[in-house]
């Protein structure tokens, strides 16, 4: 599977990373190199093999339904680049 400039641009968009137009060909080239390396996986016979999700099978731990957290507005906002009146402020989102 080969990646062209347009696909590279699409992927950058999905990942929300700005890549300048003139940098796209080099990026596509890198992708192709890495994907070429990954192609080896096609050699493996995976018929009937289940995809591994968790390497350490155990019963998922559950929590009791109690309020044990929150009530810390200042701490939540303390690292914010732009916090106003208790909210996180961000550039306008158009719906």
């Amino acid at each position: 599977m080969s990646i062209d400039k347009a696909t590279a641009a699409k992927v950058a968009k999905l990942a929300r990373i700005k890549v300048e137009d003139d940098a796209l060909p080099a990026l596509a080239e890198e992708f192709n190199m890495i994907l070429g390396f990954i192609e080896q996986l096609n050699e493996v016979d995976v018929e009937g093999v289940k995809p591994m999700t968790s390497v350490t099978p155990q019963r998922l731990k559950r929590r009791v339904d109690q309020i044990t957290d929150g009530d810390q507005q200042a701490l939540v906002l303390s690292n914010a680049p732009d916090a106003r009146e208790g909210f996180f402020a961000v550039p306008k989102v158009v719906e």
Partner: peptide, 28 residues
């Protein structure tokens, strides 16, 4: 680079070919 490769291998149409296959290889 890694974020974008990761985005690509999970994207529509490639999930089975890459991510699922890799997880199966992991099982092996």
């Amino acid at each position: 680079r890694r974020i974008m490769i990761g985005t690509y291998v999970l994207s529509a149409g490639f999930y089975d070919a890459y991510y699922n296959r890799a997880r199966r290889v992991r099982t092996l």
